[in-house]
Design a protein around this nucleic acid. Sequence first.
DNA 1: AACGCTACCAACCGCCGGATT
DNA 2: AAATCCGGCGGTTGGTAGCGT
Length: 201
Amino acid sequence: MDKKPCNSEYAEVRKGPWTMEEDLILINYIANHGEGVWNSLAKSAGNFSFLCLKRTGKSCRLRWLNYLRPDVRRGNITPEEQLLIMELHAKWGNRWSKIAKHLPGRTDNEIKNYWRTRIQKHIKQGENMNEQGSSEQNIDHQEGTSSQMSSAGPADTIETYSPTSYNGNMDNFQAPNFLPETNGNIWSMEDIWSMQLLNGD
DNA sequence: AACGCTACCAACCGCCGGATT
DNA sequence: AAATCCGGCGGTTGGTAGCGT
């Protein structure tokens, strides 16, 4: 599938991390035209702005769904969410989007990452323990990996995004006086949305 | 202080299925 | 009915921050 773009305007397609400028273009476009029709979005968003959005529709969709959407919840998975993920995964397997629908604000990508990097790892560790028949001690694998897991859990892990420019208080937020040299990840969603508001949209 | 390792996350890739022509 | 287009999904990878030695 994934047909090759035949249009010359697609000759150069940008890849890699999104910049704040690109985020703004995308947010602006969706604010004005709504979600969906990603391919045409990708086409017209380039014309829509003085800046060109040389991204594929897929890339735009992914960026919006996983990061820019205002209702995306960021930060730690709560124990309740973790439990739910495990339950639903036991039920449905790797149907991440399906699972995500039961976790408001969480994206399939986030859940998938969470599963693969944490839960799956701990399950494997648990299996290894069992294989070794190790009764070495009741190292709490699974819940107990939870010594890590739950501590990696809600309370004490770092907020996913902690941009230097935003201290959590929008009143004190200072908009930059220029668009930073495309290191988009410096910016939090709050920054971007506030920029959006400043733009008057 | 420097280096190596690990964990985490954003983003890309390829495939699939539904919609449209 | 067949071909094409497009959005969605799951798997994988690359970059990097954080931590330990």
